[in-house]
Design a binder for these strands. Structure first.
Length: 497
RNA sequence: GUCCCCUUCGUCUAGUGGCCCAGGACACUGGGUUUUCAUCCCAGCAACAGGGGUUCGACUCCCCUAGGGGACGCCA
């Protein structure tokens, strides 16, 4: 049986380091065994997908050199490789699953489900579906479907016994069926959920081995059930440890830069980022810490995978990156630095901004330093503002970050429009509102035009700088941030309606 | 709350019953090379979560406790 592995990201938000991490091991395993590595886009959540995000994933993975043998943009004979284009397939297979008794229709309302969950939580039970619609007879089901009642399709789960399975990293794992929910497989909008689409596709695409994050362990029984109902062989699963924040929690953008683009924009080399990622939860036989991807692929053996979640340490990554920089020939270095700083039309854009404000060439670098470098030291005093209190500033910055996150295409006009709107809905003078952003992004009050700067800096660096500015200003607690998120949501929605 | 996973220096890790009073790397400290800085070199600091077993012998196997993490969505 040929070795086929895959990465199955969903196009929501920034291309995550975790995707690169999973891609690395999947790709390595395929390369090592003469197999194929496949990219499949899991865009079944119609409310959260974006084409920008999909493009960003392609771009980030390609930048890293983690390209794929089959995928939405390169084709392949097991396509289509975008789940939104496979709905006919899921319809066919869900019908099969229902006919073998592996799934059933459910007409329960959201209200009933919410109440049920609340009750179960209160009693200290595992919250899950109680099986009410299991009792429906087929006549009634047909009638309600014909009537157009909103419904979903759920997975049938045994009520006794336990699910045993082998995780390639941890060995045998046992989970009682009583813990497993009757997962929704087809949503009321007719789209499949991850659990269904992913297992069907993995089978149809001939996936033989799956390296995925540890957060999937607890839903493994559902996936196993689907394979069993269909009578399919299951791929071998390796659950990769989760990359962690310094406090050991799952790496999140709240506490860390999680976007591949952030590291790229800060001037990390693909070689060192990849190399570093490969030492997280895996080690070379002789404990070599610096190695190329060719060496890694030649040596990769899943038995050396560790179950322990590693803390992502940007200091050590930086050290490695320095090693790689020093190893480049002068020619390579010149080319790559130039490309990083001025590639595409960045130089033209920079010069057009600086030109009007320059009297000498040396003004260029003085004015553009905050765009080219990422080592701004901020102090609380830098934010002192004649019209704004500290709390207000923190709030502005928090709201700005929210708005920037939601922004679709990252360009100066969109940025202007979005922030202008935000300042209006906050009833602030645009000028006052912009002040803290200037400081957060550049460390100064006198800078190049803000929206052009933001565009050049790119989303992830901007967001990161604003986040650290908020920290300098005393930070925002989780609770406060939740409250502010709500407030922001209200502001934005009243504005747009 | 329920279930699952994890536990070697601050961090990444080596270690698969004797080679380990635990090795390497980052960070840190000190020293050397260098016109400065960085690089480079040398040295130092620092860990088997705790308690029970099993065994002639346990970092390695088993159990318990503690701590950490994850999952519990018509998100993936």
């Amino acid at each position: 049986m040929p070795v086929r592995t895959r990465l199955a990201p969903s196009p929501t938000g920034d291309p995550h380091l975790g995707s690169a991490y999973a891609a690395l091991f999947n790709r390595a395993f395929a390369k090592r065994n003469g197999g194929q590595f496949i990219l499949r886009i899991e865009d079944t959540d119609r409310t959260r997908n974006s084409v920008e995000s999909e493009a960003a994933i392609f771009d980030a993975l390609r930048w890293l050199g983690l390209d794929w043998d089959e995928g939405p943009d390169v084709g392949g004979d097991k396509g289509p490789y975008r789940q939104s284009e496979r709905t006919a397939i899921y319809k066919e297979y869900i019908a099969k699953l229902i006919s073998v008794g592996g799934a059933f229709h459910c007409f329960c309302s959201k209200e009933r489900l919410d109440e049920l969950r609340r009750d179960q939580m209160q009693r200290g039970a595992t919250p899950k579906y109680d099986g009410k619609c299991l009792a429906l007879d087929s006549g009634e089901i047909d009638e309600r479907i014909a009537r157009g009642d909103s419904h979903v399709i759920r997975l049938g789960v045994p009520d006794k016994g336990e699910c045993r399975f082998v995780d390639g990293v941890r060995g045998e794992i046992t989970i009682p069926w009583s813990q497993v929910d009757m997962q929704v497989l087809i949503k009321s909008d007719g789209f499949p959920t991850y659990h269904f689409a992913s297992t069907v596709d993995d089978h149809l695409m001939g996936i033989s081995h799956i390296f995925r994050g540890e957060e999937w362990i607890s839903s493994f029984p559902k996936h196993q059930l689907i394979y069993r109902y269909f009578g399919w062989d299951m791929p071998l699963h390796y659950h990769l440890p989760l990359l962690r924040n310094p406090d050991q929690s799952k790496m999140s953008k709240r506490r860390n830069a999680t976007s591949i683009n952030y590291y790229r924009r800060c001037g990390f080399l693909r070689e060192s980022l990849l190399n570093y990622l490969a030492t997280m939860g895996w080690s070379m036989p002789e404990e070599r810490e610096k190695f190329s991807m060719e060496e890694f692929y030649g040596e990769f053996n899943p038995e050396r995978l560790s179950p322990r979640g590693p803390v992502f340490d940007i200091e050590k990554l930086s050290w490695l990156n320095g090693l790689y920089i020093r190893e480049l020939t002068s020619e390579e270095l010149k080319e790559r630095v130039f490309d990083w700083a001025f590639g595409g039309n960045r130089l033209d854009r920079l010069l057009s901004l600086v030109r009007e404000r320059s009297e000498r060439f040396d003004d260029l670098f003085r004015q553009a330093d905050y765009i080219l470098g990422d080592r701004i030291e901020l102090k609380e005093e830098d934010f002192e503002h004649r019209n704004l209190e500290l709390d207000e500033i923190r709030k502005i910055l928090h709201f700005v970050n929210k708005s920037l996150e939601e922004l679709e295409e990252w360009n100066r006009d969109n940025l202007y429009e979005s922030l202008n709107l935000l300042s209006k809905s906050m009833s602030l003078k645009f000028r006052d509102f912009l002040g803290p952003i200037f400081v957060a992004v550049s460390g100064r009050t006198v800078t190049l035009p803000l929206f052009d700067s933001l565009e050049l800096l790119e989303r992830d660096v901007v967001k990161m700088r604003i986040r650290s500015a908020i920290d300098v200003l005393g930070g925002i607690s989780k609770k406060e941030s939740k409250r502010l998120d709500r407030e922001w949501r209200d502001l934005v929605s009243t504005q747009s309606s």
